[in-house]
Amino acid sequence: MIAFFPGRGGRETDDKRKADSDGSTTEFSDRLLAHLPRLRRYAIALTRNITLADDLVQDCIERACRKQDLLQDPERLMGWLRTTLINLYRDNLRRERRRGVPIELDAVLDLAGNDPIPSDWLAMKELAGALDLLSPDHREILLLAALEDLSYREIADTLRLPIGTVMSRLSRARAQLRDALERGDVTPSSIRSVGGSP
């Protein structure tokens, strides 16, 4: 019998990985960095909270780095990141984790250097408030369609749902958003905007 005490320090490093690790990790790092702005945008839109969004993106990055051996297909990386982010978000909701200082949408847009007062600013703020009123399931699917511009097949793959469910859920999400706007449930004073808790 032999006995020794390995320390923990990350995943295994086999011979093949040692041989090509420098090139492939640099390439993987570049691809990950290229996806970050879009992934972070989706995370902020989903959570309406920048701190929470950044926590999710960081968890997502760390998970992707651990699984990079399985994520070498560039076509699949963004989809994998998005699915992972949504799963982490749902885990957070289950744990009812709420943290971070709310940041108003105006401040976010200022940070981005955009014109803070577009012509339909009030309508935009009402829309942000209406999005806040949607259930997490409806918000995540609506953002995949409207913001990420994914096809129904891609949404189905991301959320691991049948296409029929995607169609009906997306339809309900759009209808509820519209109803909230038409009922006038959302007023500028009640808008929590991007910074509000989910």
Binding site: P37, I44, D54, I61, A112, N114, A123, A145, R174
Partner: peptide, 21 residues
């Protein structure tokens, strides 16, 4: 509504990525 959702969030993609990420 769909177009506004895209417009509302488009600037978020231009935010600088925080150093911790």
């Amino acid at each position: 509504d769909t177009a506004r959702i895209a417009r509302l969030h488009a600037p978020l993609q231009d935010l600088p990525i925080p150093p911790r990420l």
